[in-house]
């Protein structure tokens, strides 16, 4: 029954076909990337690498499945047919060890530069952090240092579930958590970093288009994990951002006069952080 080989062939074709279809349907495919023309353009870098690996694995997939289907088509049992007697082939073993080895090691080294740019602590922008983002079941608490540029003072601006930044500016965020693990995931920038209680993890990125983008919690954090949705608001200009900050500060002072306890002051003020070895000595030094 050589026709079984068609099942494998058709399945392979449909797998490839579904990827090809997806690329032409914006409802299926990768989200519009908004980290492409900005100076850091991490999103473009990751999409480029994804497409490269997709092309290589796709080619290997097609060739392997063709070989498998061909073998099933060509060599079904039939009366009188005798299988070849072979225990293997040394040269073939060497060939199909070396070629994938070269490809895999190439892929590993080829990706290292991008990985270093996006995550190595030594590559982070030298500017001061724009904001602290702290995960807490099931919200993202955003804290700006305010006029004095220092976190943990009374002029800090507290925002819930909305991180405001300026277009094309490389922003540095201090990522924290007060309770359990969370993960800071911006699908349109292709950026993800877990937030770990007890650690302050620097995260940096930039965005090339003003607008509002969704911030996903990507690490299971409890019963309400699914609704831990935040937003990233990107302003066109610094002036627009300043305007927003002034009005937000004014609003905060109205509802909560300066000096009152901030909503999330418990774990993220410097006094606590200083006793916290992970954040104070490793990350900030």
């Amino acid at each position: 029954m050589r026709y079984w080989s068609l099942l494998f062939l058709v399945t392979a074709a449909l797998c490839v076909g579904s990827f090809v279809y997806a690329m032409f349907d914006p409802n299926w495919w990768l989200l519009h990337n908004v980290s492409v023309r900005s100076p850091l353009h991490f999103g473009a870098e990751i999409d480029r690498l994804t497409m490269l690996v997709l092309a290589i694995t796709g080619a290997v997939f097609v060739l392997t499945m063709l070989a498998l289907s061909w073998a099933l088509w060509k060599y079904p049992a039939s009366p009188g047919r005798v299988a070849q007697y072979s225990h293997g082939n040394h040269k073939l073993e060497i060939v199909w060890t070396l070629i994938p080895a070269v490809i895999l090691v190439f892929l590993a080294f080829y990706q290292m530069g991008s990985w270093a740019d996006i995550k190595f602590r030594s590559r982070r922008p030298k500017s001061a952090p724009l904001a602290q983002v702290t995960g807490r079941q099931f919200n993202w608490l955003v804290r700006y240092p305010g006029v004095d540029g220092k976190f943990g003072t009374t002029d800090d601006l507290h925002v819930i579930n909305n991180l405001h930044i300026v277009k094309d500016q490389a922003v540095l965020i201090d990522l924290k958590s007060q309770d359990v693990l969370h993960s800071f995931f911006l699908p349109q920038i292709r950026l993800k970093q877990d937030a770990v209680p007890g650690m302050t993890i620097p995260v940096w990125f930039d965005v090339d288009t003003p607008g509002t983008y969704e911030l996903v919690c990507a690490e299971l954090c409890g019963w309400g994990h699914y609704k831990m949705r935040g937003l990233l608001t990107v302003h066109e200009t610094q002036a627009e951002f300043n305007e927003w900050m002034t009005s937000a500060l004014a609003e905060q002072n109205q509802t909560q006069p300066a000096g009152a306890t901030a909503p999330d002051a418990q774990a993220s003020d410097p006094a606590t952080t200083a006793t916290d070895p992970a954040s104070s000595t490793v990350e900030r030094s």
Binding site: W4, A71, Y75, E93
Partner: peptide, 29 residues
């Protein structure tokens, strides 16, 4: 990342050998 890429190699070798086993056989489905 490097060690993970390398571990894909033995899996690839196994896959090719399985196809090699089918190749030229007298396959009973």
């Amino acid at each position: 990342m490097l060690s993970t890429m390398v571990i894909a190699l033995p899996s690839a070798i196994k896959t090719f050998n399985w196809i090699g086993t089918l190749w030229g056989g007298s396959i009973q489905f």
